[in-house]
Amino acid sequence: MEQNKIKRLFLANGGYLRMSQAIAAGMSRHAFYALRDKGVVIQESRGLYKLSGQPDHPYPDLCVMSLRYPKAILCLVSALSFHNATTQIPKEVNIALPRGSRTPAMRYPPLHAYFFSKASYETGIEEHIIEGVGVKVYDLEKTIIDCFKFRNRIGMDVFLEAIKLYKAKAKVQPSRLAEYAKICSIEKAITPYLEAIL
């Protein structure tokens, strides 16, 4: 497969490609490694490669995570950061996966997986296309509810700050918050906080 075809294949996939995608497109593993050794492609993480010379994505960690783990959904502090609803700087990428999934192993970016029930995992998902790469993230209301649910792991202060920023910056949607709280089985516990703050 000629080099121009490889470049087109990379560009059609947002500048990133899995080894399995290259093989499915008719490229041998040997030829792919030869391109890596020449510096035409750069290994981003295990099995994932980037076309050399392409501009960096605005959210490179999220693009790499989404390509490597298509079922992963950005959640908790990482989702708050994506929505500009926190002053926290995430040290790792928080992702949601369905219960029963294997824990992802990835050196960079560092991931912290949280396992959600089917209903909670499937609710409130937005998909953002970043330089051709689909990145799934929970909407702000679902993220706030999740932050309360996982408050013992991430800190109650994260939730309190997020709900205050939400009130200040966004159009508050109490019915959506209530719906997500019910799905996440925390309706009774969170209602006093929502009533006091909102």
Rank of each mutant, 00 (worst) to 15 (best):
R107F: 07
F115N: 09
I23F: 10
T86M: 01
R36Q: 14
P110I: 02
L76E: 00
R36N: 13
L67V: 08
Y33G: 04
N4T: 13
K142T: 05
E44T: 10
S117E: 14
A96F: 00
S117K: 11
L48Q: 10
G26P: 10
F32K: 08
I73D: 01
K136T: 01
I144N: 04
R18Q: 15
R102E: 12
Q43T: 12
F159K: 07
P110L: 06
Y59E: 11
R36I: 06
M27F: 14
A31N: 13
K171Y: 09
I89D: 00
V77Q: 02
R151S: 10
G53S: 06
E195V: 11
K71F: 05
H30S: 13
M27N: 14
L62C: 08
V135T: 00
P70D: 08
L198G: 12
K182Y: 02
M106V: 03
P104F: 05
N4E: 14
K182N: 06
D146T: 01
L165G: 03
K171S: 15
G15D: 07
V41S: 06
P174F: 01
A162S: 06
R176E: 10
R153D: 03
E179R: 12
K171I: 15
G39L: 10
R46W: 10
G134Q: 09
I95H: 03
L35P: 02
K118G: 01
H112K: 15
I129D: 07
Y138I: 07
K171G: 11
K71S: 14
A79W: 00
G14T: 04
L80I: 10
G39T: 09
F159G: 04
L140K: 11
M106K: 01
P192K: 08
N152Y: 11
Q54P: 01
I95W: 02
E141R: 05
F148A: 01
G132P: 06
F159H: 09
P58R: 10
R107C: 06
I144M: 09
L48T: 12
L62Q: 03
Y59T: 09
V135F: 04
Q54C: 11
K71C: 03
K5M: 11
Q43M: 14
V77E: 03
K71E: 12
Q3A: 10
I163M: 05
Y16T: 03
K167N: 12
L198S: 12
D146H: 04
Y49N: 09
